[in-house]
Each structure stands twice: as structure tokens, then as C-alpha cells.
Amino acid sequence: MSLDADEVDKIAHLARLAIDDKDVPEYATNLSNILELVEQMSAVDTTGVEPMAHPLELAQRLREDEVSESNQREHFQECAPKVERGLYLVPKVIE
């Protein structure tokens, strides 16, 4: 599987990554090489094999429905790029 520049652009958009036009060909080459490596997977027939999402065959643990967290807004917003009146600010969202 080889990716062309258009596909790289499409993937970069889906992942919200700005890629300089001049770098696109290099990404296309590298990503294609990685996909070529990945395609070795098809060498093995996996028909009927149960997919394994997780190394542990365990069930999810459940916590009691209790409030354990208190307000730490000021503390958490110290690392925020842009806040005002307790809100995180972003460029206008158009609905």
C-alpha cells in the first residue's frame, strides 16, 4: 500500500495536523514504507482468531458512585493557554 500526497493531506486533516506542503512527499514516502512493513501481517491467515484488545483477560472494575473530587479550577487552569472568567477560550465555534 502506497500513499500519495492527496491521501497524506486527507489523513493529516483527519488527525488535525498541519503539514508543510514541502514535507508532504517525505511523509508520503515514510508512511508508505511503514505500511509496507505492516502489510507483512497478511502473511498469516487469521480466519476465526478472536481479536485481542488487551493483554489481560480481566473484566472492568467498577467504582462506587461517590463524589471524590473537589473544585481545583484555578490550579488546573494555571497551565491553560487562554482562560477568562473560568472558561477555556477558543476561536469562535460556528454552529
Partner: peptide
């Protein structure tokens, strides 16, 4: 960025089974 793009591609519509699901089967 490369790895994000590979992962995005592997999970995207039409490729999930061939990449992600296949990899999970091999993982087993």
C-alpha cells in the same frame, strides 16, 4: 506525526478490518 497518521489511517473507515482487527488477531 508519522505515528499519529499511521494510526489514524489504520482506524479509518474501510481500513479497520485489514489493519487494526488483523493486528489484534495476530496479537492473540
Amino acid at each position: 506525526k508519522r505515528r499519529i497518521m499511521i494510526g489514524t489511517y489504520a482506524l479509518s473507515a474501510g481500513y479497520y478490518d485489514a489493519y487494526y482487527l488483523k493486528a489484534q488477531q495476530l496479537r492473540r
